[in-house]
Design a protein around this nucleic acid. Structure first.
Length: 344
DNA sequence: TATGCGTGGCC
DNA sequence: TGGCCAAGCAT
């Protein structure tokens, strides 16, 4: 049965694999210029909790600008953070630079799952995925797609996240010794295109005959998930300080929310509570309106205030030319606030 | 094990 | 339209 599942799936993958910029077709040779593990790693990090559609333009931009891990390792962290702006989960960008530098120092990516797991930003999933896809190692690759497929295939009723262990055991049991990388990608393609969260297309599924979730009826209810906590609503202020065709930008603290990213000055709002309401400058402020933005764990209503012809701004920051604002690498929240201020 | 951490698309 | 969801990691 285990062999049957992986064989059916690999046959399906040979015929239906998605064509993605970071992939080679099943059976084709990877690029011979040594960039293959780099491209696999970069795509896997970008794809953490992020959709294929969102990743594509970033992957193209990164691999054009930094074609090798050595090139990325030599880049200023600031440039990488700015290039990552808009993709979210910015600790990934900080870890990306640290990882690239560690890999460049040691002369290339390690090839075992255990060594990969030691690199910054590589957890259980990414280490297994890189080991399997880039180096052909047998590894048990479990992401949200695999969890969904396996929970349905074996009709695992226990709710996530508690069900992680039995799901992993089941995934291990169906993972083949050969073509582990193709198998992992096939499971993810199946989850993304057939065994989708809503409205799974069982009639097109190569595993439907073996699927206990389908046999039990209503496979879409699996996997069962624990209820989510409600998101609090926070209020905050942001300040657009303009002078002679430039705006005052600050850099946020290295860790935590939007860590290390350029930003507008604000009043210290956070997931824990509202901002102080205190502007960073004296003077008259004009209201530019409200930005609503929902993060993973809270929603924010950000009031944007404008001061033009401002005197020298205090604290640390930089005057950023308005005609190059798109190069500042503002995360989406502050890009929205900037649009509001510029439209005013 | 629970929590903090982005964003955009979907219905 | 608001909640859900998407190739998770660090602590």
């Amino acid at each position: 049965m285990a062999a049957t599942v992986s064989e059916h799936l690999l046959d399906w993958y040979d015929a239906h694999a998605r064509d993605l910029p970071w992939r080679v077709r099943p059976g084709a040779a990877p690029p011979a210029d040594g960039s293959w593990p780099y491209r696999v790693w970069l795509s896997e990090v970008m794809l953490q909790q992020t959709t294929v559609a969102a990743v594509k333009p970033y992957f193209e931009a990164f691999t054009t600008r930094w074609p090798t891990v050595e090139a990325l390792a030599a880049a200023p962290e600031e440039d990488v953070m700015a290039a990552w702006a808009g993709l979210g989960y910015y600790s990934r960008a900080r870890n990306l630079v640290q990882c690239a530098r560690a890999v460049a120092r040691r002369g290339g990516f390690p090839q075992t799952e255990a060594e990969l797991r030691e690199l910054p930003g590589l957890g259980a999933y990414t280490a297994a995925a890189v080991a399997a896809i880039a180096f052909g190692q047998r590894a048990v690759v479990v992401d949200a797609n695999v969890e969904r497929v396996v929970a349905r295939l074996f009709a695992i009723e226990a709710p996530l996240p508690g069900a992680r262990k039995p799901i992993r055991v089941a995934a291990d049991a169906i993972t083949p010794d050969h073509r582990a990388g193709d198998f992992a990608q096939a499971m993810m393609d199946l989850g993304a295109t057939i065994c989708t969260s809503r409205d799974p297309k069982c009639l097109l599924c190569p595993l439907s005959q073996a699927c206990r979730g389908r046999a039990a009826g209503d496979p879409a209810r699996l996997p069962v998930k624990a209820p989510k906590k409600p998101k609090p609503l926070r209020q905050g202020q942001a300040y657009w300080i303009e002078r002679e065709g430039a705006v005052w930008l600050v850099k946020r603290a290295g860790t935590g929310m939007l860590g290390g990213m350029r930003a507008l000055p604000d009043d210290g709002w956070s997931a824990r509570g509202d901002g102080s309401g205190e502007p960073p400058l004296q003077g008259v402020w004009e209201s530019a309106g409200l930005v609503r933005h929902t993060f993973t764990h809270f929603a924010l209503e950000l009031s944007v205030h404008i001061q033009r012809d401002a005197p020298a701004a205090g604290g640390s920051g930089e005057w950023w030319p308005l005609d190059r604002l798109d190069e500042a690498g503002l995360p989406t929240l502050f890009a929205k606030a900037a649009r509001l201020a510029l439209a005013d």
